[in-house]
Design a protein around this nucleic acid. Structure first.
Lengths: 122, 122, 122, 122
DNA sequence: GTGGTCTAGACCACC
DNA sequence: GTGGTCTAGACCACA
């Protein structure tokens, strides 16, 4: 796991994004225990407070949960993970349609081009 | 025409991008004369040299041409504009597939979701 | 290495030409590291930006490549160097035929004179 | 006949060159009478003194001759014109060999490439 | 230290 | 007036 950050957005937001990806991709499986905030922060070379903030937000969203004195864990609710995955996908899809529209392609043209592209690279 | 720049990429690159969009969208039609470098630079609030660099690169790609002492013009080669449009679209498509793949969706899943999204918003 | 410039053409163009000659002649061999932009500029007594422009264009043509924070290097693709050599030669040949034609010599006459000249000086 | 001058060399030298080309190419035939210095100067948009200087040098070389009260004429000595033609050609040939040598081609390689080029464009 | 970018301001050639 | 070029000097990212 490598952590990289760009300067154009807050680091805590980028942390959230990366952690979500780790969960969605299954790299961090449901119910799995996370390293300590300190360790994670050291690993990512960020301030522990920043890491803490990211984890708190993820916890607020229900993606993580804390067991006092024992640590933080990934949610075991597969449904929730699935919903996150779908919701992130919807954001990407919306942005993609937006960009293609700026290029002058409407939704159906866009889909047709996507089909061709997928077929072409098989 | 509004010009906005982010800090994470060179301004000249963003200028190129925006100008390409202006051409593709037809806002600046084939054969049309551009404002002078100085005017464009003032409009975009960048240094004339930066605008000059962007225009030079676009000219190198054949999208613009210069008539000495008279000004710069959009290419009259509609074919070239079409090719640019397609090529920019291919970049977007590739990036989109890439992102969706990180989320765990393969090409055919992605396309299915796109179709649903397009249908859902009609 | 001496750098000289005439006033009738842009300096950056003359820089490009001289550097190409350095590469073709093998004075700067494939894979070799160039001096820094600043050093080259000082050596040639031009502004660093001007040298930078020349190098950028050469890089765009694939004759050089940059390793961030480490420096610029001559391409290791001997084929590309050979192609450059041939292409520059073709330009010279074309111009030469052109001039001789203005003097009233056609291609075959020109070649015959060249053969005589080469023989005469042996 | 159009007259064009670059700034990097004296105008009178460029006048000489152009006039020599006119004679060699036969545009101005042997024995033909030239327009007056004043007219030539006006035509070329140069100072009459400059034109005068060019003509004097050409006369010194024997390419022109003056008949008092009647005007200037192209030499009728075809031999001389031929010699001029050859001598200008030799200059071109020498320069060409020089340039090709800088590119790394020796005389025989150069000649072979010229033959190929001439054949290729037929 | 490296290359990359940007700005400000100047001069030139062309018509 | 147009575009083209050059210089001087600054700041940034990267390692």
């Amino acid at each position: 796991m490598t952590w990289e950050f760009k300067k154009d957005r807050p680091i805590y937001a980028q942390l959230i994004e990366q952690i979500e990806l780790n969960i969605i991709s299954g790299l961090w499986g449901p119910g799995e225990r996370l390293p300590s905030v300190r360790d994670l922060a050291a690993q990512a070379a960020v301030n522990p407070n920043t890491m803490q903030r990211a984890l708190s937000e993820l916890e607020r969203d229900g993606l993580l949960y804390t067991v006092r004195t024992s640590g933080r864990f990934i949610t075991e609710d597969g449904n929730m993970i699935q919903k996150l995955k779908d919701s992130l996908a919807m954001v990407e899809i919306r942005e993609f349609f937006e960009k293609m529209s700026k290029l002058g392609f409407d939704r159906s043209q866009t889909i047709r081009m996507l089909e061709n592209a997928a077929r072409g690279e098989k």
